[in-house]
Amino acid sequence: MDQPGSHWKQRYRSFYYTHAEVPDLTLDLERTGLLVIDVQNIYFSRSDDPGESGEWAFFRSRMKNVVVPNIVRLTDFFRERRMPVFFARIACLTADGSDRSLSQKRAGFNNILLPHNQEASHIIENIKPLENEVVVTKTTDSALTGTNLRLILQNMGIHHVVVCGIFTDQCVSSTVRSLADESFDTVVIEDACAAGTEELHNHELEIINNIYCQVLNVEELLEVLEMEL
């Protein structure tokens, strides 16, 4: 579990990796890209819980004060160095959402109708894609399943994928697992991600760390990247 102030190699270790020797992280800048997942207008406008102290207070506070500012830092860093930035967003191609995968049709939180041409499905203004930045539209949790993102990453020579966005325990995790299965070297930026609760966020990071990805915070990632410049 997370231990504030500790090195990334010691944080979010699950039972399986308690005694594992974690290697140093090396990123080839020419083969590294940033993937921002599902940071869309809908998640900043939903009225399920309007109270600041309600069920979604943690998520709203974390997004406003931690996640979005850190994603801005990441996109700025990558753009300034002409390193590719990719975006994934949930959006259906049909008005009634009939093209969505089963996971996005089930009753409950995931059942959000987001036609691709509606403002609610667009990436938020703070980090909106620039011209020539790739945006994939998905009707699944994973940004690789049902899109051509894998082919795009391979065509552009990307091997290391830095992942951030929402939700840690759903679309972020699903995408990370898919990337790992396709043999992409994946890094998740824990303070540029959020889940509905802190417990869900931390637990999912513990599950995926060291097997599907390495979990770092923004400062640690930037330190690694700066060493490669």
Rank of each mutant, 00 (worst) to 15 (best):
G5N: 00
R150P: 01
G165S: 02
T75M: 00
N111K: 15
Q170Y: 07
P115W: 06
L34H: 06
V215T: 14
V135M: 08
L205K: 11
V215S: 03
G108Y: 08
P84A: 01
D96A: 07
T175A: 09
F77T: 02
R62A: 11
E80I: 00
R46F: 11
N148V: 03
G33N: 03
I166T: 12
V188S: 14
K105V: 04
L149A: 02
R177C: 09
N148R: 07
V172E: 10
T168G: 13
K64W: 03
A143I: 01
I37S: 11
I207M: 12
T75S: 08
D38H: 12
R13P: 06
A88F: 07
G54H: 13
N70F: 07
V85C: 05
Y16M: 14
R62F: 11
T139Q: 15
A57G: 15
R177P: 01
H203G: 11
E190C: 14
I123T: 13
R31T: 07
S47D: 15
A91I: 03
E228G: 00
E220L: 00
M83G: 01
D191R: 05
C164D: 07
E21I: 09
E199N: 09
N41F: 05
H201T: 09
F86G: 03
D96G: 05
E125G: 03
E226P: 02
